[in-house]
Design a binder for these strands. Structure first.
Lengths: 191, 191
DNA sequence: TTCAATCTGTTGTATATCCGACAAATCGAT
DNA sequence: ATCGATTTGTCGGATATACAACAGATTGAA
């Protein structure tokens, strides 16, 4: 499915780097974290960092993607239809993620984080739509995925700002009928 | 003091192996633990195990030594005289060690474990005596160290068998006068 | 501004680890 | 006692990581 086999050394090292980065993120702001900090926390050589990541922004990118994806994959790949339950699950994953990670650290990088989350959502939606509507025009699916990712992420921002007392699953439900309708109007379930 | 610098890779790998071995020792008996078990728990290649250890007995040897030494070094290297307080501390380290590790696992390897502990004790005593009595005949110091290590270990076995309700520091105290006397008769404090 | 100090990426070489394969040894069941 | 299955140690070739050094960029204080 993913890649057949990866050298265990790279798995170990990548994990060491990512864990160290997450650890340091809890201690100080992103802008104050240097590559040296990360590699000495991880007890690996600084050059090895650059063997795995282009720079510290690339690391941020991959860490965020991975953390978000871990939350998502569990729920998403059990259901296989893009229905109400799945959308609720995704929305919850996003709000969980925002509560756990992006709030407590990375001040000043909210925009970067937002972009990464949206990109990940877009990828997930697109894959899902492709599988669900294989006969449909790919361009149309792409546009739908973009719209969904921006739209749902926007709702999560709104929830963070003004409605954290409402349970996320509750909050998203009021938007779901529009979403489902939008999908079904565009192209009626793979027909 | 020890060695100037060791490659961080070997530190990581040795720790992974030793930790995995200790972990597995809690789950099953020593005789049922294979090298494959250890290396797959540690997520390292089996060949790498043999790069660090001769075989699984060598690993047992080093793990026991290291665990025991960790207990000892804290206490021993603060005091620098081989006096009553230090002997009590050493005895406590041994009984602690026996309670924590050798009882719960490694059934059937008590003799091996006993030998390893005695060897370690002998090394520690010899070093200490050398520093304390630099003018004395080395052969005499060696003999004293051997006698001390066997004797004190024997007392700890006796304690384990029949007197665990007595506090170790209490138990060893009754033997200490003889020990100290023995040292001082043989060669009067480095004169 | 200027200067010193730190940080960033990059490179070449040495070495630890991986991987697959192998023969010999050991184990367990028939 | 025999046979298949596992384990043990070992090896050679491939690859990831360590290390030291470097020039350029960035930072922070005088």
């Amino acid at each position: 499915m993913t890649q057949s086999k990866t050298d265990p050394r790279v798995l170990r090292t990548r994990k060491l780097i990512m864990d160290s980065f997450i650890e340091l993120s809890g201690e100080k702001e992103f802008k104050d974290i240097t590559v040296k900090d990360i590699t000495s926390e991880a007890m690996i050589n600084r050059a090895t960092f650059y063997y795995h990541f282009e720079d510290i922004y690339d690391l941020l990118d991959k860490v965020l993607s991975e953390v978000l994806l871990v939350n998502l994959n569990c729920d998403v790949y059990e259901n296989n239809e893009l229905n109400e339950a799945m959308l609720v699950a995704i929305f919850q994953a996003i709000t969980n993620f925002q509560k756990s990670l992006s709030n407590r650290c990375h001040r000043g990088y909210e925009d970067t984080i937002a972009r990464i989350i949206r990109e990940q959502l877009e990828i997930i939606f697109y894959k899902r739509l492709l599988k669900q509507c294989p006969t449909e025009n790919e361009q149309a699916l792409k546009v739908t995925a973009v719209m969904l990712s921006w739209g749902i992420y926007g709702v999560s921002v709104e929830w963070s700002k003004n409605n954290q007392q409402v349970p996320p699953e509750e909050f998203i439900k009021s938007a779901i009928p529009y979403i489902i309708a939008g999908i079904n109007i565009g192209f009626a379930k793979g027909e």
